[in-house]
């Protein structure tokens, strides 16, 4: 829903493919067609088992290298596999966390978070080795030693409570985005309100880009007390709507879960028309941002 979608769009000219062509193209002699096919299969959520198999194989690709040593096809394959929701991708993605290419590791961490499989936790924890001291910028590159943001966020989403003592020091990381990722994970792992409040405070600091990051974090953790601050802060409405959508959906799931526990699973009507007041408040805010 955002106006720009640059992150995902590969440089190759857009091309219409069929599922069969895209799968076949993953082995095409033209490497740029392989790269495009991997992106395409993720973008259009092609859950065909043959597509998943071919993408898993592409995680070990050796043919497509760039001058700095990166593996472009592996990056796109790892990103796509997160979107396809097939758990068979988990072992291959875990192996990618050891890849020499930072961007492959980052894509793998993000996709492992999306697949929601706790089997990834030990390997993700390993990337935090050395703590904040090791979390320095790699000389000559625009990134840190590890994709800390993606790793911290994945550990939070995967409910990796064992990682709490390792995540805590990152709350003081000098880079704001890493600090926010740590706050987000700590909130998810402890449900301690202070972490949520610190993210809300961050909405008033930093530049527009950072505020966008914080908005998406608040949406991802569904922190309901942030609703008003999200609606008020100085960022484009598109980002505010995504964040409030996160709050709304999280709030509704929570209520459903609680009523399921209270009344027994048999009494839960998935189409129940009862909406909690907090959900209505969030929707009123969303309406005002359209």
């Amino acid at each position: 829903m955002l106006e720009t979608n640059s992150e995902e769009q590969p440089e190759t000219n857009a091309q219409v493919l069929t599922v069969e062509q895209a799968i076949a193209n993953l082995q095409h002699e033209d490497l740029s067609l392989r790269y495009y096919a991997a992106w395409w299969l993720g973008k259009f959520r092609v859950r065909d088992p043959a597509a998943v198999d071919a993408l898993i194989a592409a995680l070990e690709d050796e043919a497509h290298r760039i001058a700095l040593g990166g593996y472009p096809l592996r990056r796109n394959a790892a990103r796509a596999l997160g979107k396809l929701g097939d758990q068979r991708a988990v072992p291959g993605l875990i192996r990618c966390l050891d890849c020499s290419d930072y961007y492959v590791r980052e894509a793998a961490a993000q996709s492992l978070e999306m697949l929601g499989n706790p089997a990834a936790v030990p390997a993700l924890i390993q990337l935090l080795e050395g703590g904040v001291a090791a979390a320095q910028q790699v000389p000559g590159r625009p990134h840190l030693a590890q994709p800390y943001e993606a790793v911290l966020e994945a550990l939070g989403s995967l409910q990796a409570r064992v990682a709490v003592p390792l995540i805590q020091p990152f709350l003081d990381h000098p880079i704001a985005r890493v600090k926010y990722a740590a706050l987000r994970a700590m909130y998810q792992l402890t449900e301690d309100d202070t972490y949520g409040q610190r993210l809300v405070q961050a909405l008033e600091e930093g530049d527009m880009k950072l505020r966008r990051v914080v908005l998406l974090d608040l949406g991802a953790i569904g922190y309901l007390p942030a609703a008003e601050s999200i609606a008020q802060c100085s960022v484009e409405n598109s980002f505010k709507l995504i964040a409030l959508k996160g709050l709304l959906e999280h709030g509704i799931e929570e209520v459903k879960l609680r009523s399921a526990v209270a009344r027994g699973p048999l009494f839960v009507d998935p189409r129940s028309s009862h909406l909690p007041d907090t959900a209505i408040q969030v929707m009123n805010l969303m309406d005002s941002l359209l």
Binding site: K245, L248, L275, A279, M283, M286
Partner: peptide
């Protein structure tokens, strides 16, 4: 939309509209 809408947030807004 209550039956087929994929996004929970939109479904919730439909419920609110009906209410």
């Amino acid at each position: 939309m209550v039956q087929n809408e994929p996004d929970l947030a939109v479904r919730a807004r439909v419920q609110l509209a009906r209410a």
